[in-house]
């Protein structure tokens, strides 16, 4: 790896943001890449917004500031949109169209943002965006993190190989979940058809997105 790379992971408390960060750290370490992370714990774990910075390279220390993230891994649509200002014109983003409604939306006091609008914006402004709309059967909608990470590994220049991440999954995941998580990850990478899924028809995110809490 010749340059420093900064990754921002966003989501909602309970979606596994910190678990993904652990994986990235473990995979980088095993690949001999210097890695640092910075995250904030506390109230964010009570269903609040969670984000974590992961930086790879000699002169970075885990801190990702606005306009600095080379990759955005968004586990939840609204939270990904909230962190847009961290992207720059050459960024890559992989955003899961999982929609976790905050109270103000479930009480119909405010509206959840529009998927096509953000997608069109990102397609115009950044290097590449992947919006994940796959329905994964038999997968807890709150635990799609590895599928999303799998997608991220397909992005140009992503600092870690899927092999290193698989090894990391084996290392830090409870044995009972290992196989399932690796399958889900490979599914995201596009190298395993083991999980039943179907591509959402029509592609209109608003209609097909899963609404979960």
């Amino acid at each position: 790896m010749s340059r420093d790379i900064k990754v921002m992971v966003t989501g909602v408390g309970g979606q596994g943001v910190i678990y993904l960060v652990d994986l990235l750290v473990s995979a980088a370490t095993r690949s001999g890449i210097r890695v640092s992370t910075s995250e904030v714990h506390g109230l964010s774990q009570r269903g609040g917004s969670v984000n974590a910075g992961v930086t790879f390279g000699e002169n970075t220390f885990g801190f990702v500031d606005q306009g600095e993230a080379d990759y955005l891994i968004g586990l939840e649509f609204l939270e990904a949109q909230r962190h847009l200002s961290y992207l720059h014109s050459l960024s890559y983003a992989v955003i899961d169209n999982t929609r976790i409604l905050p109270f103000s939306v479930s009480s119909e006091a405010s509206t959840y943002p529009d998927t096509p609008e953000l997608l069109a914006f990102l397609e115009e402004q950044i290097a590449r965006v992947i919006l994940i709309e796959d329905q994964l059967e038999e997968v807890n909608p709150l635990h799609r993190h590895l599928f999303v990470l799998g997608k991220a590994t397909t992005l140009e220049g992503f600092p870690l190989t899927s092999h290193a991440i698989e090894k990391a999954i084996e290392e830090i995941t409870r044995p009972a979940l290992q196989e399932q998580n690796i399958t889900l990850f490979r599914q995201g990478c596009g190298t395993d058809a083991g999980i039943k899924r179907h591509r959402a028809q029509g592609g209109q995110g608003d209609q097909t997105a899963r609404s979960i809490v």
Binding site: S44, Q45, G67, S85, F103, S110, P113, F121
Partner: peptide, 25 residues
């Protein structure tokens, strides 16, 4: 900065629904 920030973000990030922490399910 060498990295170019995104243009015209305001409409997309202002007034997003907040996600305050809440008591668990």
């Amino acid at each position: 900065e060498i990295k170019k920030p995104l243009q015209g973000l305001n409409g997309l990030v202002s007034n997003l629904p907040q996600r305050p922490p809440t008591l668990c399910v």
